[in-house]
Measured scan of single mutants.
Amino acid sequence: DEVEIEDFQYDEDSETYFYPCPCGDNFSITKEDLENGEDVATCPSCSLIIKVIYD
């Protein structure tokens, strides 16, 4: 799936974006990952991944 970065929750302390996963955990991707060109957020509890859409 693809999710807009605006739909993520941002945690300023950890500089990490979170998005709810269907399994009950959260996908996460850090601001640093995005700045380095990464665009895939992973869920630590299951095998799902999502593509992050940002400009």
Rank of each mutant, 00 (worst) to 15 (best):
T16S: 14
C21R: 00
N36Q: 15
E38Q: 12
Q9I: 11
I5F: 10
S45L: 03
I29A: 12
Y17F: 07
E32P: 06
F27K: 04
E2T: 15
S14M: 10
C46T: 04
E35D: 02
C46D: 06
C43V: 00
T16R: 14
V3N: 01
D7R: 07
Y54F: 11
E32T: 10
F18Y: 14
I50Q: 03
E6N: 15
T16W: 06
I53D: 04
P20D: 02
V3T: 05
F8P: 00
S14W: 06
D11F: 13
I53G: 10
P22D: 12
K51S: 07
S45N: 14
N36T: 10
Q9G: 06
Y17P: 00
P20M: 03
D25E: 15
C46E: 04
L34E: 14
G37Q: 06
F18R: 06
V40M: 01
S47V: 07
I50V: 08
S14C: 14
P44Q: 13
V3A: 05
C43Y: 00
E35M: 10
D39R: 12
C46V: 00
D39V: 08
D7L: 13
N26S: 13
I53V: 08
G37L: 05
D25N: 07
E6Q: 04
P20L: 12
K31F: 01
V3Q: 12
G24L: 06
S14K: 13
P44A: 07
Y54D: 07
I53N: 01
D33Q: 13
E15F: 14
N36W: 08
F27A: 07
V3P: 01
K31Q: 03
Y10R: 12
I53Q: 12
K31N: 07
C23D: 11
D33S: 14
Y17R: 03
D55H: 02
S47E: 06
F8Y: 03
D1A: 08
L48S: 14
T16P: 00
P44K: 10
E15W: 03
I50A: 07
D25Y: 07
S47P: 08
T16N: 14
S45F: 03
Y17I: 01
I53Y: 06
T30N: 00
I29W: 09
D11E: 09
E32F: 05
Y17A: 03
Y17N: 09
S45G: 15
P22H: 04
E38Y: 05
Y54C: 11
F8D: 00
C23A: 07
T30A: 01
Y17V: 01
S14E: 14
E2H: 15
E35Y: 01
T42N: 08
N36H: 12
D1N: 15
P44G: 11
F8A: 01
P44S: 10
D39I: 01
I5R: 02
P22F: 03
Y10V: 15
K31Y: 05
N36D: 05
P20R: 05
D33M: 14
A41V: 11
E6R: 04
D7P: 00
Y19H: 11
K31M: 02
P22L: 09
P22M: 06
S28V: 13
Y54P: 09
E35W: 03
Q9K: 06
I53M: 11
E6H: 03
D11W: 02
C43E: 00
D1G: 15
E35N: 13
L34H: 14
D13P: 08
V52N: 05
D13M: 07
C23L: 01
V40G: 13
C46F: 00
S45M: 02
Y17M: 03
S14I: 15
E4M: 08
G37S: 13
V40F: 05
I53S: 07
Y17W: 14
I5D: 00
D39M: 14
Q9M: 11
I53K: 12
S47Q: 14
A41R: 06
D39W: 15
V3D: 00
F18L: 11
D7G: 05
I49H: 11
E15P: 01
E2Y: 15
D7T: 05
A41F: 03
E2V: 06
V40C: 11
D25P: 02
N36S: 15
D1I: 14
Y10E: 04
E35F: 08
I49T: 08
I50N: 07
D39N: 06
E4D: 12
Y19R: 09
E15T: 08
Y19E: 06
S28M: 15
Y54M: 04
I50Y: 02
L48P: 04
I5K: 02
E35P: 03
D55E: 15
E4F: 11
E6D: 15
L48D: 05
